[in-house]
Amino acid sequence: MKITLKVWRQANKDAKGSMKTYRLDDVSEDMSFLEMLDMLNEDLTTKGGEPVAFDSDCREGICGMCGVVIKGSAHGRYESPIATTTCQLHMRYFADGAVIEVEPWRAGAFPVVKDLVVDRSAFDRIIQAGGFISANTGSAPEAHSTPAPKHLADRAFDNACCIGCGACVAACPNGSGMLFTAAKITHLANLPQGQPERHSRVKAMVAAHDGVGFGGCQNVGECAAVCPKKVPLESIAQLNRDLFASLFKSV
């Protein structure tokens, strides 16, 4: 198939970027979106041009490294019939002759490093603030020693699925990282291991979220709609409930 790409090119963090147009002629519909970008880069490199910088790692939809806005939706979510990451989006969902805009995640807290690569360390700041449980190292405890109710374990798992790709922020009209933060909060708050730090965690993570420059949530729902792991919007309500309760606790 033939496609026309309009790709955001930006030399570095401080440079002014713009959309550049490229044409590709023999794209196979079995290619993933990233393989198609690889093809473009091969083409650019042989012609002596600068390849397009983009992030990727596992290319299996499980690491959260990849992510660009395709035709106006994060991970090209609105081109695909199923929830997907950019690496698992396939060219068969695009029409022959399609014009495809490719842009980086855009958010105040995710500055562009180069072309389609953004700096997502703002997410790391949120995790560092409390997205973990404190445990003494040593041999792993026996799994059955802390039983977890099935429905809570399921809810925790649905949220633990978050791969931290940042699509929620990219899709949010407020540039809010609330779905990401809520996924981590909901994951840990529904498991016995998460209880001791439950109150201090939510306060610290929300404070970090606001501190690194994410916007506030307006309950729009764009985040959950593009999430490749289908983290539900309800998680944000759980974060809110936990935060309100935590404000009355001294920890």
Binding site: R106, A107, G108, A109, F110, P111, C172, P173, N174, G175, S176, D210, G213, F214, G215, G216, Q218
Partner: peptide, 8 residues
């Protein structure tokens, strides 16, 4: 906060 969060 949203204007800042939204970016370009």
């Amino acid at each position: 906060a949203s204007l800042r969060g939204r970016g370009t």
